[in-house]
Measured scan of single mutants.
Amino acid sequence: SQVHIGNTTFTFDNPEKAQKYAEKYAKKKGLTVQKNGDVWTVE
């Protein structure tokens, strides 16, 4: 599972961890999370 934030990609061994990280980061920065398969993009 991966989380894309700008030009940075974070890889997680667990989809739940990836989703939590993406949502927490997005909330903190006032951004949105797009999910595509097991990839979350914060923008």
Rank of each mutant, 00 (worst) to 15 (best):
V42K: 00
V42T: 04
D38H: 08
V42I: 12
T32E: 05
V39I: 13
F10Y: 13
F12S: 04
D38Y: 09
N36L: 13
K20T: 09
K20V: 11
E23R: 05
E43Q: 12
P15H: 05
K27T: 06
K28C: 13
G6Q: 07
T41K: 06
K17C: 13
A22K: 02
G6A: 07
W40Y: 12
T41P: 00
I5G: 00
Y25S: 03
A18W: 03
K28S: 10
K17T: 13
T41C: 14
K29C: 15
E23P: 04
E43M: 14
P15Y: 07
G30V: 00
T41Y: 14
V33K: 01
Y21D: 04
T8P: 02
T41F: 13
K24P: 00
Y25W: 10
G6T: 05
G30T: 02
Y21E: 03
A22F: 06
Q19H: 09
A22D: 01
V42N: 01
V33Q: 01
L31F: 12
Q34C: 13
V3F: 03
S1D: 03
T41A: 04
E16Q: 12
Q34F: 12
Q19R: 13
K35Q: 09
N7E: 09
Q2I: 15
H4S: 08
Q19P: 02
G30M: 00
H4Y: 08
T9G: 02
S1V: 14
T11E: 10
K27G: 07
Q34T: 14
F12N: 02
N36P: 01
A18N: 05
Q19K: 13
T9I: 15
T41S: 06
K27I: 05
N36D: 12
T32D: 04
K29Y: 15
K29Q: 07
K17N: 11
P15G: 04
V39P: 01
K28N: 08
D38A: 08
V33F: 06
G37W: 03
K28W: 11
N14V: 08
K17L: 13
H4N: 10
T9P: 02
V42P: 00
V39W: 07
N14Q: 07
A22C: 06
Y25H: 06
V42W: 05
T11H: 14
I5C: 04
E16L: 11
N36T: 09
G6W: 09
W40F: 10
D38K: 06
W40A: 01
T9D: 04
I5Q: 02
D13T: 11
V42M: 05
T11K: 11
Y25I: 13
N14G: 06
K24E: 15
V39N: 11
L31G: 07
Q2R: 11
N14E: 10
D13V: 09
T32S: 08
E43F: 13
S1H: 14
D13N: 09
Y21R: 05
T41M: 11
K27R: 08
T9A: 05
V3L: 05
G30F: 03
E43C: 13
Q2W: 11
D38F: 11
T32L: 07
N7V: 06
T32Q: 08
K20I: 12
A22H: 00
K24N: 14
E23W: 06
I5D: 02
A18H: 00
W40P: 01
K17E: 15
T41H: 10
K29H: 15
A26K: 02
S1L: 10
E16F: 10
E43Y: 14
V3E: 02
A22W: 05
L31C: 12
G30E: 03
F10E: 00
A18F: 00
S1F: 15
Y21W: 15
K35H: 09
K27P: 01
H4T: 11
K28E: 14
V3W: 01
G37F: 05
K24F: 13
E16Y: 11
D38N: 14
P15E: 09
S1C: 14
G6M: 08
E16H: 09
G6L: 08
I5Y: 04
T11Y: 15
A18T: 00
Y21K: 00
K24S: 14
G6N: 09
K35V: 07
D38R: 05
F12G: 03
I5T: 03
V39E: 10
G6F: 14
N7C: 12
W40Q: 00
K28M: 10
F10C: 12
G6D: 06
V39S: 13
W40S: 02
Q34D: 03
V3N: 02
G6H: 10
V42Q: 00
V3Y: 00
H4L: 13
V42D: 02
V39Q: 09
E43A: 13
Q19Y: 11
A26G: 04
F10S: 04
D38P: 06
V3K: 01
T32H: 08
T11R: 09
K24G: 13
Q19D: 04
G30Q: 03
N36I: 15
V33N: 02
F10K: 07
Q19G: 03
T8G: 05
K20R: 13
I5K: 03
K20Y: 12
A26F: 04
F10A: 03
V42R: 00
Y21I: 05
Y21H: 04
T8D: 09
L31E: 01
S1Y: 15
H4E: 05
H4R: 15
Y25M: 11
G30L: 00
L31M: 10
S1W: 15
K17D: 15
K29W: 15
K24C: 15
E23K: 07
V33W: 06
K27Y: 07
N14K: 08
I5H: 03
Y25E: 08
G30Y: 02
K29G: 05
Q2M: 14
D13W: 10
V42F: 08
E23Y: 09
A18G: 03
T9C: 15
E43P: 06
V39T: 13
A18P: 04
G6P: 04
A22G: 01
K29R: 11
N36F: 12
K35F: 12
T41L: 11
Q34G: 04
Q2D: 06
K20F: 10
F12L: 04
K27W: 06
I5S: 03
E16I: 11
E23L: 12
H4W: 07
V42E: 01
A22L: 07
L31P: 03
D13A: 12
L31Q: 03
K20A: 13
Q34K: 14
G37N: 07
T9H: 12
N14R: 05
V39G: 11
K17S: 14
E23I: 07
E43D: 12
K17M: 13
A22S: 02
K35E: 01
F10V: 09
S1E: 02
E23G: 00
Q34L: 12
T41N: 07
T11N: 11
Q19S: 06
V33P: 04
Q19T: 02
D38W: 08
T11F: 15
Y21A: 06
H4I: 15
V42L: 06
F10H: 09
G30P: 02
K29S: 06
Q2S: 09
Q34Y: 13
I5E: 00
T11A: 09
Q2F: 14
A22R: 01
K35S: 06
V39A: 09
N36S: 10
Q2C: 14
T32K: 11
Y21V: 06
K20P: 03
K20C: 00
L31K: 02
K17I: 11
G37R: 03
W40L: 05
K28P: 03
D38V: 07
N14C: 14
F10P: 02
G6Y: 11
K29N: 14
N7K: 12
E23T: 04
T32V: 11
V3M: 03
K35M: 06
V3S: 04
A26S: 03
S1N: 10
H4M: 13
A26T: 01
D38E: 10
E16M: 11
N14T: 15
V39M: 12
Y25F: 11
T11Q: 11
T9Y: 15
Q2K: 13
T9Q: 07
N14S: 15
H4A: 10
K28G: 07
T8F: 14
Y21N: 00
A26N: 03
K24V: 09
N7F: 12
K35W: 08
H4D: 05
L31S: 02
H4V: 15
G30H: 05
L31Y: 12
H4C: 14
K29F: 15
D13G: 08
G37A: 06
W40D: 01
K20G: 07
A26P: 00
D38L: 10
V3T: 01
K20H: 12
E16D: 10
K24D: 15
G37C: 01
P15W: 09
F10I: 14
T8H: 15
K35P: 01
V39F: 09
K28H: 08
Y25P: 01
W40G: 01
I5V: 08
F10G: 01
N36A: 09
Q19I: 06
A26V: 00
E43H: 12
Q19C: 13
V42S: 03
T9S: 08
S1T: 11
F12Y: 02
A22V: 08
T11G: 05
Y25T: 03
E43T: 14
P15V: 06
A18D: 00
T8Q: 14
F12W: 05
K20S: 12
I5M: 04
K27S: 09
